[in-house]
Amino acid sequence: MVNIGFNIGDLHFKTPVLTASGTFGYGSEFDDFFDVSILGGIILKGITLEPREGNPYPRMVETPSGMLNSVGLQNKGLEYFEKDIYPQVSAYNTNVLLNINGSTVDDYIALAYRINKLEKIPAVELNISCPNVKMGGMAFGTNTETARTVIKKVRAVYKKKLIVKLSPNVTDIVDFACIAQEEGADAVSLINTILGMAIDTKSMKPFLSTITGGLSGPAVKPAALRMVWQVAKAVSIPVIGIGGIMNTSDALEFFLAGASAVQIGTASFIDPKASVRIIEGLEQYLGEKGFSNIKEIVGYINKPNI
């Protein structure tokens, strides 16, 4: 029997495959396809203190081996979540995590403080890397001083596991990972989408209403993998790899580069069962290679004997 569980501190995840925020709704969208409790965890659609309508349509365009989106954190706010969504997601027999977003540091603090009280949410992913909001979002995650401030202040009020989701739109993502570790984050997840754009030559206008959006899908995978590898060498807290993982082989690359877990994002749009197929694929691969624990391959390429 192969052990593919992983831990963030004392928080156990039964598999190292989670679903990325904004790509898996609130889980129930996938109930028809498989039992989502099989997953190590689900990270719910990004939440803000107040309801947000998001950006105007069009907010998505397909690009070579990927897509750009500028959804802009459409959600019904914390109060609605507590009342209408929390009771439903609490029924899942897996870790349900919230991805938290703010326009100001105070927003993040207020969210973290209230979510800390939700018994069934064992961890949050602090999103300081959303590229699609005018205020906050990526602005916090692309400046080392503001990143430090928001992580520090959230850490002070949030007592459970804190994961910081990092932006790739920086000169050196390692600096931000180190700041997260220094300020007491329990893990880092990377990468959020890469800022990009596309223009419709027929209409001679940008495809997205916001002009720019976040690039995801296989197109970003090599860049994401490189950043995960760099960060995993620099920090001792767990690294969760995200970026264009479509299948088992893609996921394995992230583990071999140093990720302790992965998140499946855009792949779920094309194959709603991508995450569960990857769990099965990981078990099979490890069994065939003669490993008993997935930990044995985490950061394998950095081991001195190869």
């Binding site: 969208e29 996938f30 659609k45 998505m60 989106n69 779920s268 749009f269």
Partner: peptide, 17 residues
């Protein structure tokens, strides 16, 4: 008929005002 990614309500890309 709007541009869609997932088709199952997960991505919130195909919204209509």
């Amino acid at each position: 008929e709007n541009l869609m990614a997932c088709g199952i309500g997960a991505c919130l890309c195909c919204v209509v005002d």
